[in-house]
Write a protein that binds this DNA or RNA. Structure first.
Lengths: 194, 194, 194, 194
DNA sequence: TATGAATGAGCCTTCATTCAT
DNA sequence: GATGAATGAAGGCTCATTCAT
């Protein structure tokens, strides 16, 4: 019988790819470097992906879906927008704490005109934002002029922006603590009420 | 008599560079294409910049400073945060309307870990945000827990995010109108008050 | 008890290899594709051949020998050159009709400087041509200045060229019929007489 | 002013490309090797051709047209098929004597299913063959059943086949002399008469 | 015996940069 | 000052081949 696929191998490649894209940008992350760092042959990833782009797109979609999954879960469990927002933002911070590269990866590619996420993901996000809106409209937590778009920007992009500003050390203040998290959550919740 | 340097030449190169970076990404924007489109020799830009990266960094700084300049001007003229925010956001929308590529350029490179803007620019932005804060603290337009960082995110990043979400057609709604602008301005002003 | 080797397996590989070489050229016919199409593991053929080249060379020799076998048979059975030529050419046409790929394969590799057939095959062909010459000299069907080389070119290469010119649709006329076959045979026989 | 294009450089590349294709086949002739042998940078040829294929196709067409040009010239000057054939075959031999690689190149690529010559060239050749036919029909040098296709095979392919058989040392007899040339010419002329 | 996961040399191509003119 | 011919390192990718199972 032939050798069994070493699952950890491709995992290593994926992790390294995320690292390199974050560090050097999509263009700067070469297959050769990724493979070497992952301890894998250059041609290895082509057994699983058609090419570099397919790999990165897949990683991006996974990351987006990971957050969407969490949001979906929270929407099932919580019946107040405040809780949903609070827990989602904490989840995002948690990702940033455990895997800073993952949140940086998301940050970098979300803003790259060459890596739009798929229509399916976009529609899913839209629906989830609408659900938040519905809950908030009923509970009075969301103002009548707040759109799904606003919700997306506040609940998803805003925390990611904050985290990356901190990682980039943009205003000199490194990292973050619980106070920062609560601060961000409060701003979001208040703004939604507007 | 020495020939006068054709000032417009380098301008053409810069404009084309912005266009190409937006269209094809940093990696995809080749010097050869830029030079050809600008009607300039391939080697031309090396008389002014060390290389491609230096050129792009310079363009990014210019763009950032352009907005900072506007903000500085508004701070001199206005004595209410509401006016500053309103006029600045309108200015950003204006740039997006007259030169969509410029706002896309800013959007793309602001979020690229390979293109951090210089310390000087960052400090300048920080000071301007502090000035907004001071005005707002006095006039009661800015809540006591709002930081310079929050102001930066709300006043600068938020509108740029909105515009690009629309350009990307993220939620299906193309472009924007005055109602959208007022909507964004209102959200920002209300959030600052929080 | 040892398992019996599945003879048809290697046969399938060989047939597929011929197909792929014809379709994509030697370089374009990848072992992976051949193996997959033949329903065999990629590493399978290495139990029988040193590598891709050896396989293809072997196939070429087989094909050459197949025609030589036929010629040998005809020489035993016929005592007129006209019959030998007629039947051999018809045989070649028959191969082209039943297995167009085989005749294309022969055509392509016969003319590739990287795939000379072995000395043994060449000598065999030479001897067969000499035999034709001998018969023709005695029967008056072959002119005194016609060499073995001429015979080879007329009797073997000429029909193969004709067939491939037609397959390639070189002069717009697709395929061939019995009239074409008789036409080619007649030209060959008349030329030999010269 | 910028440097002037060194015309001989591209000539060297072309010549080397022909050599390498003959020696190693199209697939085996790598750009790196060609460039190195031609004393030129690897990227050089991409200033003139889109890629390897375009280069080789161009070389093939040039070679085909060179022979077509000669044939056209001969048709203007001669009024007997015998003369046309004799001079054309001698021309082909001459090419083989001066540039053996060129005739080998033609031989190899004419028989490669991946390198069909353009429609324009094919039609041109067809017309030239028809012209030969017309002349021969009038002068009685060409039999009534001989087609343009036959003429093409006899006048063009036949000599090229002969030359390459000799170069390949197929029947042990190296090279050729004037007697060989006359022999081939005679066969062709006699066959056409049939 | 047969498999097919894994390799890595080598392919074609691009393009930022240099420098003779 | 300005040009653009020429470079060659580096990129993404393919695929014949190997070998643990």
């Amino acid at each position: 019988m032939a050798r069994i696929i070493d699952i950890s191998k491709m995992e290593r490649v994926k992790e390294t790819a995320i690292q390199m894209v974050v560090e050097k940008g999509y263009g700067g992350a070469s297959i050769a470097t990724i493979a070497k760092k992952a301890g894998v042959a250059e041609g290895y990833l082509y057994r699983f992906y058609k090419g570099k782009e397919e790999l990165v797109v897949d990683l991006l979609c996974n990351k987006v879906n990971e957050i969407a999954d969490e949001l979906e879960l929270l929407l099932q469990r919580c019946n107040r927008v405040a809780d949903v927002v609070s827990l989602l933002v904490k989840k995002i911070f948690q990702i940033a704490e455990n895997n800073p590269d993952h949140i940086k990866f998301l940050y970098v590619l979300m803003h790259d005109y060459n890596f739009k996420i798929g229509d399916r993901e976009r529609e899913r996000i839209f629906k989830l934002c609408r659900e938040i809106k519905n809950i908030g409209s009923n509970s009075g937590e969301i103002g009548e002029f707040i759109t799904e778009e606003d919700i997306y920007m506040l609940v998803n992009i805003f925390p990611i922006q904050f985290i990356n500003l901190r990682i980039k050390n943009f205003f000199g203040n490194k990292s973050w603590d619980n106070t920062d998290k609560e601060h961000i959550i409060e701003i979001i919740i208040k703004t939604l009420k507007a």
